[in-house]
Design a protein around this nucleic acid. Structure first.
Lengths: 163, 163
DNA sequence: CCAGATTAGTTTAAACTTAAACTAATTATC
DNA sequence: GATAATTAGTTTAAGTTTAAACTAATCTGG
């Protein structure tokens, strides 16, 4: 009988289903906040930039041909007004380009500039290393199980948030 | 052999440990963001308030005798300046009281007012129900395992973020 | 064609958030 | 006991974030 299984069984006996969802939510939130705090600090001290800027650049890096403002805001789950502001600041710094589309003239094609690509590459490698180190206390098996469970969380959310 | 175990094993075979930490982080972040988005919207439409205000009130509700600004900011993992602003707005609305301590005159004793307690009670019940519904697609066993793994994440973070 | 509805993006106002500078009170050290 | 270091909290400046109002372009049903 493994230690992990024992702990989980204890929890089933001690904790009502009622309180368990709330507990999961608080833990989910705390983990995210702790990682975010750490990563934000490192972006500031090592690259003199912010996490939202990196997030937007990472979204842009996924599509070298460029994408619309709406694509970025939907991918990052934030409002379009938010993206407008961050893209504007990135554009001022010459890291992204924004151009009105030829076809649908409402949309704008946004992409990383050459400078932006290079900068993102540097930051991305460091970022990946930070995360790997932060989670180095987890075994591969634990991460695989956690990944499965987080997928289940997402499925549950998708089904319930509409109702 | 359960479906869950099979999925996890597939992942071990297909995904390098290197990429797995990053994947976990993105899933953690996405789950949190989706829940936050939903909860924020409900606080706005059903109680005409914000999530940060509720978070501060929930922190205060834990200690009926009151606590310092620093206690609240440490509990919520946010800056003290942030707490100053939110407490000030809650105070204007008569939901909390803030008084300079008699002993150490640098610290302030903050607590929910009577009105604040009643308001928090109403919101807290609704909040718990929202979360329970959002996670209703998870079994008790899945939640218990997820809880264990998130504790392991937290332990890993605590060990690594100092280094 | 064209009036109304929809969509993409920006702007605005308010709140949130942080890091850093600052003030005031306390503690430590000599 | 005076001075230095620390601690609690506030303030400030800049950026992030949202919801809602707005502008401009496109689509849709007559």
């Amino acid at each position: 009988m493994s230690g992990k299984a024992q702990t989980a069984i204890d929890k089933l006996e001690q904790t009502s289903r009622r309180k368990m969802a709330l507990r999961i939510w608080l833990r989910l939130l705390t983990s995210s906040q702790l990682i975010e705090k750490e990563v934000r600090g490192r972006f500031r001290t090592e690259f003199d930039t912010t996490l939202p800027r990196f997030d937007v650049m990472a979204a842009l890096a996924r599509e070298p041909e460029g994408q619309t403002m709406g694509d970025v805001s939907r991918w990052l789950l934030v409002s379009s007004g938010n993206i407008t502001g961050i893209i504007s600041r990135l554009e001022e710094d010459g890291l992204v380009t924004r151009a009105r589309s030829a076809g649908d003239r409402r949309t704008h094609l946004v992409k990383l500039s050459c400078k932006g690509k290079k900068e993102f590459e540097r930051m991305s490698l460091a970022h990946e290393k930070w995360i790997r180190n932060l989670l180095s206390g987890m075994t591969k098996e634990e991460m695989a199980t956690l990944d499965d469970l987080l997928i289940k969380v997402k499925i549950s959310l998708a089904r319930e948030e509409s109702s």
